[in-house]
């Protein structure tokens, strides 16, 4: 069974079509980069997987269950198994690194325990280990608004990891970072995938980063999959197609 199987996934915003029937499968432990220019539908695709956006039609099977059938508690349980990382980190800026990382455990808690922030000793220990692993142990008790962009994104990664997820979805995780911080983040994502066996699906608009890090590239253009395969099979002609430029503009090297 595939960990993730997407069948004819379609999304309309009012009249505008964002996803036009995408189908693909992702295996456990894969590192997949989704590339495409802005407005292609990458974010919509990612958010249909954990139902942060409601698909209009099609199926999203995670471990064999169609996520579109899940309600309330079951939907929350699905989401605990899927971490998410954002371009703008989406942290609670006024809280400390440790508090933000522990937010990743809320999905496992009763309403009351979550409201009062009742985390177990084991959870705190686990969070501290992850924080150390991401090189943030100097900042465990720092407020997140005092951190740099790269550090904030590492907090975002730690918050996803503390969920013990099987899959991590990353929506443009390095789009707001300088090249050296971006490299640190991408290296962490690769380590997570290789060493912890967590599947990583990452939206990128930088082709070079996608080619360097991923096992597999999916090219999205106007809501359709125009490429799905190994990075080395991705021709420059296809790259130009994905980015929507005329083949006539190609300059040969």
């Amino acid at each position: 069974m595939h960990q993730l199987k997407v069948v004819q996934l379609t999304k309309y915003y009012k009249q505008a079509q964002a996803l036009a029937g995408l189908s693909f499968e992702v295996e456990n432990g894969e590192f997949v980069a989704v590339i495409g220019r802005s407005g292609a539908g990458k974010s919509t695709l990612l958010r249909c997987i954990n139902r942060m956006i409601e698909p209009t039609a099609g199926q999203v099977l995670f471990n064999g269950t169609d996520v579109r059938n899940l309600r309330n508690r079951d939907l929350r349980r699905l989401r605990t198994g899927i971490g998410m990382i954002f371009q703008h980190y989406n942290l609670v800026h006024r809280q400390t690194v440790l508090e933000n990382v522990l937010h990743g455990r809320l999905g496992f808690k009763s309403d009351w325990d979550g409201i009062v922030g009742n985390y177990t000793h084991a959870e705190k220990q686990h969070a501290l280990e992850i924080i150390a692993k991401l090189g943030l142990d100097q900042h465990t008790y720092s407020r997140c608004d005092t951190l740099s962009g790269g550090q904030k994104q590492r907090v975002g990664i730690a918050r996803a990891l503390v969920q013990d997820p099987q899959l991590i979805l990353c929506d443009e995780p390095i789009a707001s970072l300088d090249p050296s911080s971006a490299k640190v983040i991408m290296d962490h994502l690769r380590t997570i995938c290789r060493e912890m066996g967590i599947t990583v699906i990452v939206n990128l608009h930088q082709v070079d980063v996608a080619l360097k890090y991923s096992d597999r590239i999916m090219g999205v253009k106007a809501g359709t999959l125009v490429y799905d395969g190994k990075p080395d099979k991705l021709s420059k002609k296809l790259i130009h197609e994905i980015y929507g430029t005329e083949t006539g503009d190609l300059i040969d090297e």
């Binding site: 942060m52 998410m84 954002f86 609670v92 809320l106 979550g114 922030g117 918050r159």
Partner: peptide
């Protein structure tokens, strides 16, 4: 807005997001 999105995506309940984010 952004932190609420993150917490919801991790499976937190409505009361969790209100109290923690």
């Amino acid at each position: 807005e952004s932190s609420v999105e993150a917490l919801r995506a991790s499976g937190a309940s409505w009361l969790h997001t209100v109290s923690q984010a």
